[in-house]
């Protein structure tokens, strides 16, 4: 099953990269969402897949009974899920606000920090704050 998951992760990563290479900010954000799933699956399969038992210590005993799933990657993934949620929320709001200010979701048009080297004709759509 690890082999299958490894291939699945590859597909997810390829899709992520393709989406993030788009000029469209919306697609970029979709890529970000896929990326966190790909990363979590990578950690999960690298930590060894064990069918069934969750990592719990039963009542009356000091250690788990028999073989249980690896607890460490689970803890890491839990942290990762929450953090990627925070990142995604921020990215979304940033994209939304960028669109409000600049009037575009095309990242090639968002050039306030790094203007094009050659002088270009003024584009009225790019001056959202002018009003």
């Amino acid at each position: 099953m690890e082999t299958v998951l490894a291939v699945t992760v590859g597909v997810l990563v390829a899709a992520t990269v393709y989406l993030m290479l788009s000029r469209n900010l919306v697609k970029f954000v979709f890529g970000l969402m896929l990326l966190s799933n790909a990363a979590n699956l990578t950690i999960f399969s690298a930590g060894g897949l064990i069918r069934g038992e969750p990592p719990l210590v039963p009542e009356g005993s000091y250690v788990p009974d028999g073989v249980v799933a690896n607890a460490l990657p689970q803890a890491l993934i839990l942290t990762a899920i929450v953090i990627s949620f925070g990142l995604l929320a921020f990215a979304l709001v940033l994209a939304y606000r960028a669109y409000q200010e600049l009037g575009t979701v095309d990242t090639d048009e968002m050039r306030i920090a790094e203007p094009r080297p050659e002088p270009r004709t003024p584009a009225p759509a790019g001056k959202g704050t002018a009003a």
């Binding site: 992760v9 590859g10 597909v11 997810l12 390829a14 899709a15 393709y18 290479l21 788009s22 469209n24």
Partner: peptide, 27 residues
Amino acid sequence: DGHGDRTGHIRDAVVAIGTGIAISLTL
């Protein structure tokens, strides 16, 4: 879809699939 012309599509697809394969093989 924001990848530009045909060349842009192919370039982006090659990088994307290449990255995917590299990650799969690493795993």
